[in-house]
Design a binder for these strands. Structure first.
Lengths: 196, 196
DNA sequence: GCCTGACATGACACTTAGTGTCAAGCAGTG
DNA sequence: CACTGCTTGACACTAAGTGTCATGTCAGGC
């Protein structure tokens, strides 16, 4: 990695660190971008060169998940049932959060507790859903234009994802995410695995 | 209704009419609030007395749906299976849109095609989901804190709702919403009606 | 070692969304 | 007529986000 690239990473990390610390502490609406950039020691203009919006600093923390999930689903063996493949797919993302509870829990709680952030988060999820649906259609040789199953199955999996995240967040990380994921998929599996 | 109340309705309607016409025609980001209020003949300050944000003018068009859905679910006979009750619940809202295709279709297409509007719309749906989950829990005598079913079932129903709306919108109102709703619920019913 | 091009930054001005405040207009009431 | 409550417009203000330009800094070629 070149020096310039390392410098960019450094600035982005410092900006994200300062932002998350302030936002989690004082609440999303009570912190201005000017405060964040003052804490990070850069100009406001630079902030918006790294993040498209104030929401983005928080949301980008979970940004990779979308591509991660699709890749994970694509990597599952073809013989696996949809419910099993999707359960593992969702679990990888949940685990990425729950595995770093100390850092991730406050962020998740901030997102779920802030309407503006929740809105952006759900918008991202909608994109993930389309990605997952496309992957599912490929996997099962279905026409995503004619068949409703891919979109619905992806939607159900993400509903499970959201519900687990919400429970985990509401319990302050107390509840076991693995168990929650399994319980959620037990509920939706009959629809995922029903013969079309 | 008193004169003052009728005047308020008049202003709100004119504002919404002017806004939707401009937004649908030129796109959400290409229209400023100043343009809207100029077209409606009121001050910018008045606009924000009627709508909390620019997004709200569009979203409020679908605002009632939330309460409508919960009321509709509460009104379904207790003996009905969850999938049947939820299918009717969702259908009432879909029909409220599809029944006024001329007015509703452009609005739905605007929402689904504008990230900022989609985000707000999904945020609303999240609230509906909690409402529906609470109603489902009551209906089935479940503890919504312990059991994942109510949230998941409500989420699946709203996934179906969103998928149907998306298909209907993408087909320019061509596809039959009733048939789409039935097909969607055929897919998710096995999970909704599985014994807990 | 010097020049040069690519790139990151800060400063500044600008647009737009959204809010607080206040004085003026207008209906209904005694 | 005087009083009260509600709606409105005008104005000033904060904060998010963008365009532009001059400056600085690192890389590789001469």
């Amino acid at each position: 990695m070149t020096l310039a690239e390392r410098k960019r990473r450094l600035v982005a990390d410092e900006l994200a660190r300062a932002a998350l610390q302030l936002l989690a502490q004082k609440g999303f609406d009570a912190v201005t971008v000017d405060e964040i950039v003052a804490a990070a020691g850069v100009s406001k203009r630079t902030f918006f060169r790294y993040f498209a919006s104030k929401e983005d600093v928080v949301i980008q923390f979970l940004a990779d998940m979308g591509t991660t999930m699709r890749a994970e689903l694509a990597a599952r063996p073809a013989a696996e049932s949809p419910s099993t493949a999707l359960r593992h797919t969702v679990w990888v993302s949940i685990d990425a959060c729950a595995g770093h509870t100390r850092q991730a829990l406050p962020v998740v709680q901030l997102i779920l507790g802030t309407p503006a952030l929740l809105a952006r988060f759900l918008e991202r999820q909608a994109q993930w859903r389309d990605d997952l649906a496309a992957e599912l259609a490929t996997r099962l040789n279905l026409d995503p234009r004619a068949d409703l199953y891919p979109h619905l199955a992806a939607g159900m999996a993400l509903t499970a994802f959201g519900t687990v995240l919400q429970r985990w967040s509401a319990s302050n990380g107390t509840e076991d995410p693995k168990a929650l994921t399994d319980r959620a998929f037990t509920v939706i599996a009959p629809a995922l695995d029903a013969v079309g």
